[in-house]
Design a protein around this nucleic acid. Sequence first.
DNA 1: GCCATGGGTCGGACTGTCCGAACACTTGGT
DNA 2: ACCAAGTGTTCGGACAGTCCGACCCATGGC
Lengths: 342, 342
Amino acid sequence: MADPAPTLRSLARVLGLSRTTVSDALRGSQRVDPNTAERVRQAAREAGYRRNPLAGALMSELRRSRGTAFHGVLAAIDFNEPDRPAHAARYHRELVVGAEARAVELGFKIEKFSVGHAGVSVQRLDAILQARGIHGVILLPAWDEPDLSNLDWTRFAGIYTDYIIERPALHSVCPDHYRSLLAALQRLAALGYRRPGLFLQKHADERLQYRWGAAFRAFQESHAAIKPVPPLIVDAFAKEEFVRWFRRHKPDVVVGHNTVAIDWMEGCGAELPATHGFVCLNVLMKTRPCAGLDLQPRTLGARATELLIGQLQRNETGIPEWPSTTTIPAHWVDGPTLRTAE
Amino acid sequence: MADPAPTLRSLARVLGLSRTTVSDALRGSQRVDPNTAERVRQAAREAGYRRNPLAGALMSELRRSRGTAFHGVLAAIDFNEPDRPAHAARYHRELVVGAEARAVELGFKIEKFSVGHAGVSVQRLDAILQARGIHGVILLPAWDEPDLSNLDWTRFAGIYTDYIIERPALHSVCPDHYRSLLAALQRLAALGYRRPGLFLQKHADERLQYRWGAAFRAFQESHAAIKPVPPLIVDAFAKEEFVRWFRRHKPDVVVGHNTVAIDWMEGCGAELPATHGFVCLNVLMKTRPCAGLDLQPRTLGARATELLIGQLQRNETGIPEWPSTTTIPAHWVDGPTLRTAE
DNA sequence: GCCATGGGTCGGACTGTCCGAACACTTGGT
DNA sequence: ACCAAGTGTTCGGACAGTCCGACCCATGGC
């Protein structure tokens, strides 16, 4: 093990070939004689040659985009959805802000693109990215199942910033809804609340594969002191349904997205924080001051950028064999809708 | 913008300096005359120079590691736990095998260390790693809450290969139990099973923050055609308790860790796969042929290594501000305990 | 006058890739 | 028999930014 690690050049010297031929042979280029290629592969195996992926990525980039030098540019791709609610638009903006900040720190730059509807088509996007020499893309969350399978993924590395993407199945980054709600409920229990209730829109939970509801039930099951208030999961927000549920099951704290529930609770005679409490599952959605969960879109954007740059440095383009999901727990935000101590 | 993007060399030519001096100046080296440095910085600003981060990373690695025979060494740290069951030991081995393979591909190498009990103490480990110039560590799962907070984390980057580590709070990599069980139940439903039952040891689910149980209940709640068999979650495996549950709730397929349940089912008159089915939640634990989930320890080890090397390349040591959890879904394995079609 | 010191600058070497040039050899038309 | 065109294979140049050792030159002590 005293010898320095073998390189393309040392290998070529031993074989009596040029470094170029060795490189081509190892990458399976059609230009080299099959016999020569086999010879090279065997010698590489025996010498324990390991290609330097960093150099590979650099050179590939450098040569391919000759003239138009490497800019270190990443694309943030937004699926153009016309009637996106304000909080979702803000979540997207925060994701991009976080991604941009981290990108700059690592010597990259982010450009925004919009596809579908008023934006460009997928084919057009492919052409634009290729022309600009962009090989890393961050896909922003889409309400409907996004489809970018038409992109030529052999030339791109991608990260999705929501739970699951199937077309194609990329690595993704998103909040840890399950763990965050468990932690929030634990905090409520520590504050003395014993009858937590969950108030959700059905579609919101479905998108997360029922993680909110699952965490809520798991908490109830595993804590004997907690009274099992059944979660209220509705098709659309409606006052009557909520009031009926609230009167019947008497939760002492309600956890949900929509802060209009606070008004309805007060309409039933509740006084916050004196008699009851409220926690918002996404502070970007609150329309009045209250405690809640910050899903940390900036941090998610930053982490997505880190993962993407990691892939580029390993020269890993294409669809991963085993897509992974990276999650970050939400950050608790105090507010006037909860009592401060037992 | 007709000119090609400025490089260190083009910048140096204009300034009448060498590329080295320009590089040093821009990176704020002490070796350069402050006046020269300022001149360089201004010229770079005016020319719109942007350093190529890929080339930077490559060269930094290349130059720094010259002379040192190995590109980089990572440590795999195992918490020495005396009475670890055989399947856990195998899971650990597979994790390391996956990590080693990926490390080699990326030009790194892995060395194994064992701490606690018969292994070295944490203080000693710190000294050893420092002396060996090792800055990346992969922590293997520990049954009890592991504690490595005494390591001088300002000098290390670390990844834990299980759900959560609090001392210190590092990034972690682990299987996606929640999603995997949901997917498995969906598959069973597609095969025609309508009364799935879950059989768990309490401690096993607690360690995962109840994710098995939570996924099971979430599936029942969201699928009207599925009969809600209550999960059997026991303190210790015992035949009588299982048989009572099995007779009373009549599940048509049982999902659990311990394959001894198959014997008990057969004792109750079940015939697999004719009348009933069984799925093992971790194929490393099965003691007889059956369908189940491969939690993919090799892939997890590989991904942990990638994340760790990413941190090292970004020069990120210490405890992350926001620890993330990266999960990979389990891989379904067919077996003779399930019918093959509707 | 000589040598040691040190601040500032420079050149060499390093990685793998891509493209066009170069070369050897075959084929087909005249 | 000769040349043009085509085919198959190999090679060399250029490229990025960094680190280390070498080098130049001014200064100061003896």
